[in-house]
């Protein structure tokens, strides 16, 4: 069973996208922990750690990814969560994609991504016990 945390770090108040993803992943047979809006990087990583998820799916629409994602990845490393797959979705400008990947994000999904592609990506990367 694949377990995913869908998290909304930062201050933007729109979680329609996050909820669509959560439902799509559930319908694909995954267990999805959703923590609601306005999470700090510390809260996001604490939840991922406590819930022992395979995947951390971040949704950021506010443009704050250049500050939020580095902090989150730092905390992930501090806690030795080496086997965590981190995905980023939302509004991420083209030029920011590579820097996000360099931080350790496995893949960036932009607006209009087919949820089947996300499901397929996760299935391809997470070993199911």
């Amino acid at each position: 069973m694949i377990r995913v945390l869908v998290a909304k770090p930062g201050l933007d108040g729109h979680d329609r996208g996050a909820k669509v993803i959560a439902r799509a992943l559930r319908d694909a047979g995954m267990e999805v922990v959703y923590t609601g809006l306005h999470q700090t990087p510390e809260q996001v990583v604490d939840a991922a750690l406590s819930e022992d998820v395979d995947v951390l799916a971040l949704s950021i629409l506010s443009g704050a990814h250049p500050t939020l994602v580095p902090r989150i990845m730092e905390l992930v490393k501090e806690n030795h969560m080496d086997d965590l797959l981190v995905l980023l979705g939302g509004i991420i400008p083209e030029d920011d994609v590579d820097p996000m990947i360099n931080l350790g994000v496995a893949k960036v999904f932009g607006p209009g991504t087919d949820t089947n592609d996300i499901v397929a990506f996760i299935r391809g990367r997470v070993e199911v016990v």
Partner: peptide, 22 residues
Amino acid sequence: PSSPFSGGAILGDRIRMQDSVM
């Protein structure tokens, strides 16, 4: 509850427990 159709689930209890869990 798990979905009887897909076997997946949405686990939302953490939303209301944010004050205490950190």
